[in-house]
Design a protein around this nucleic acid. Structure first.
Lengths: 243, 243
DNA sequence: CACTCTCCCTTACAGTGTTAGGGAACACTC
DNA sequence: GAGTGTTCCCTAACACTGTAAGGGAGAGTG
């Protein structure tokens, strides 16, 4: 039906329901919000310019009025994520180790709950309100603990890249396991450990000997190790006595 | 020219120089080698299935006989990179701190020299000869230092994600600076520090106070901090006395 | 000989980021 | 109020991506 030229022409000259989105409906903030929505709902792989645009009731090329490239959009998303993470890290127990640890654990939890958040954050050079807020929280704890400004900024930097690096790896292991149909996030690790046990012991003596030790700790224990080692490392630094 | 049907037909029925690549020229190893070559020459963004295939004198779909997806190809590249990194980390001075530090610094140097290597590695769940070799080296040092098998595996894991996380960030800063035409890799950091200094001090008191401290350390100093803190953290762990 | 495997090929598809250029609505000046 | 510029959305199109479907030449084996 509707294949004769006349009705085809009719269809083509129909009003077509163009309905431009109303002007000004897209701001940089709205863009970040829409991006976060798509990210949470469909994941990073589905986060295309067209998808974000659709979320705003707009076509993809329109985004380029507000943003120079997709990369810039992701920068926006990155800082928005940091801003969203900040409230999850509110602590001041008086014990700087506990406070800094809580920040690390809170950040980890945030990165675990927010779908693909770590993949957006990792390897992104962020500077915006979100980043600043998170840094401020950490610097406050570190400064009050008596660390020098220099050590405090370095420690804050280290904390960020460490947690991000860890989570990037954890999430990779999770999705690798999911891709192969394994349920539970330890399955992959266990399997690898078994595989390693069968490796030639003359070539990888220490690795083979450690196979069982590798299968042992779950991600929580690994993270505890990473954080505690970092905190112990800070402990070795000089600091002025708290008042 | 050559727009009349006759010559068009001629052209279409020309031998066309089909020349299939000879069979068996593509192995999984050759595939990894070709991938590494493309990566080094043109960078990760230019590493498409078609580009890797061309490097092998083959068409893109042929790769799918050897590899299930591009992701699997990247896994191959990842382990090949680890294998390439291993010889760069050969040490045994007798001092475990020095040895482990040298491994970390060597790995960093490798990730800096090998274009986009860190972007391939980061967030990839690797298990292959390359990964095993690197782990073996680290475990040897840690074991001989007297750490328990458990602590040694955890420390090795931590070292890997820490260095990778750090380099991912460093390279991001570098390419962000390059993208904006800044030369030298500190320019971006300096600029940000200046920007932070102008932030509202009532909202970000510690951040503003630390602005100058942030501009100070270059990437080498930051890395030294990260590694030394990690080593100090290990020092706090119990270990059996060396013989 | 015929048959099966291996491994490359061509063709094609749906989807990507991005550019070029057009037009409607608003804000300002004369 | 007319004219002009700016803002912000649109359509059309491009070059390119990863990947599926199916074909065919050659080697190995009965």
């Amino acid at each position: 039906m509707a294949t004769d030229p006349a009705s085809r022409f009719q269809a083509m000259t129909q009003p077509q329901e163009v309905k431009s989105a109303e002007r000004g409906s897209v701001t940089r903030d709205a863009l970040a919000r829409a991006g976060l929505a798509v990210l949470q709902r469909d994941g990073l792989d589905a986060l295309s310019m067209r998808a974000v645009a659709a979320e705003l009731g707009v076509r993809a090329p329109s985004l380029y009025w507000h943003v120079r490239s997709k990369e810039e959009l992701l920068d926006l998303l990155g800082d928005a994520l940091m801003l969203a993470a900040a409230p999850d890290l509110p602590v001041r127990s008086g014990d700087w180790r506990a406070d800094l640890g809580a920040i690390a654990w809170g950040f980890r939890e945030f990165l675990r709950v927010r779908r693909d958040a770590v993949r957006v954050l990792a390897g992104r050079f962020l500077h915006g309100p979100g980043m600043w807020t998170v840094m401020e929280q950490q610097l406050e704890v570190l400064h009050d603990a008596g660390f020098s400004r220099q050590d405090a900024t370095l420690a804050s930097y280290t904390l960020g890249i460490t947690v991000t690096g860890f989570m990037l790896n954890e999430q990779a292991a999770v999705s690798a396991a999911e891709a192969e149909g394994r349920l539970g996030r330890r399955a992959a690790v266990d399997e690898i450990a078994g595989l390693i046990e069968g490796l030639p012991a003359d070539r990888y003596p220490h690795l083979v000997a450690s196979a069982r030790a590798m299968a042992g700790p779950d991600m929580d224990e690994r993270f505890r190790f990473v954080v505690d080692r970092f905190l112990d490392g800070l402990e070795a630094l000089p600091r002025t006595l708290p008042t």
